[in-house]
């Protein structure tokens, strides 16, 4: 699996993501600047990391969603390419229309930075094959706008069609609808989630709970 990491101004977790990809994939991801208009040839996976793209002074991710590179990402997705968006990356995917719903300010109106437990809703996707069925794993959160919302028909459809990827297991601190922490696109080739599995891939940093996501992708 050949991975590329998008870099928008204000993205700040690209280094964490590079480390996680390097460890599981065994090679360096390509870094793709937001002003590019095409993705590198034969790229399998586009990763949009966390941060504050364009300062998030407008709605989180709204500016990045209009960047030149996103047209190429939409085309990649339409071809059935894989996309992973974490935190600001998830917000950019919803703002781009590649995933349904939106991420609002956290219910308590404060930035939340702590570990959370996530429940793996299905382990038969390209992102989760290295998790056991029903696995619960730990991941750091670090966001001000992680409160997932969508209209009830959309939420029903996400649940009915098995498109919920992860749910908050210990506590729903940001107020997300139906405890949703991450969702898939209809073809389950696009994943967006708020917490940061890429920050828990090394025992020294407190554990390797997030590593199965990258191992799953590497094996795909």
């Amino acid at each position: 699996m050949k991975a590329g990491i998008l870099l928008f101004p204000g993205i700040n977790r690209e280094r964490d993501m590079i480390l996680a990809v390097r460890q599981s994939f065994g090679h360096e991801p390509q870094i793709i600047w937001h002003k590019e208009t095409a993705l590198p040839a034969s790229l399998d996976l586009v990763i949009i990391p966390g941060g504050f793209s364009f300062g998030d002074y407008l709605r989180c991710g709204a500016m990045a969603a209009q960047s030149p590179i996103m047209a190429a990402v939409r085309a990649h997705a339409a071809r059935g390419g894989y996309v992973l968006g974490v935190c600001n990356g998830f917000q950019i995917l919803t703002e781009s229309g590649l995933l349904p719903g939106a991420l609002l300010r956290n219910a308590g109106l404060r930035f939340l930075s702590m570990d959370t437990l996530l429940r793996v809703e299905r382990n038969d996707t390209v992102f989760t094959s290295h998790f056991a069925a029903g696995a619960v794993f730990r991941a750091p959160m670090a966001h001000g706008d992680g409160n997932y919302t969508a209209d009830s028909a959309t939420l029903d459809r996400l649940e009915g069609e098995g498109l919920v990827a992860f749910r908050y297991h210990d506590a729903n601190r940001n107020g997300s609808a139906r405890d949703i922490a991450g969702i898939y696109s209809d073809n389950r080739r696009i994943l967006g989630l708020m917490p940061h599995p890429e920050d828990l891939v090394d025992p020294l940093m407190g554990g390797t709970d997030g590593k199965p996501i990258f191992d799953s992708l590497a094996a795909a």
Partner: peptide
């Protein structure tokens, strides 16, 4: 307080707030 500060960005935080007498951050 520290739950409002991102203490993990960079992926090198070995000891977060309150885990040790001093914070430990590894050099990449």
């Amino acid at each position: 307080i520290f739950d409002q500060y991102d203490s993990t960005v960079g992926g090198q935080t070995v000891k977060r707030p309150a885990q040790a007498d001093a914070a430990i951050v590894r050099l990449e």
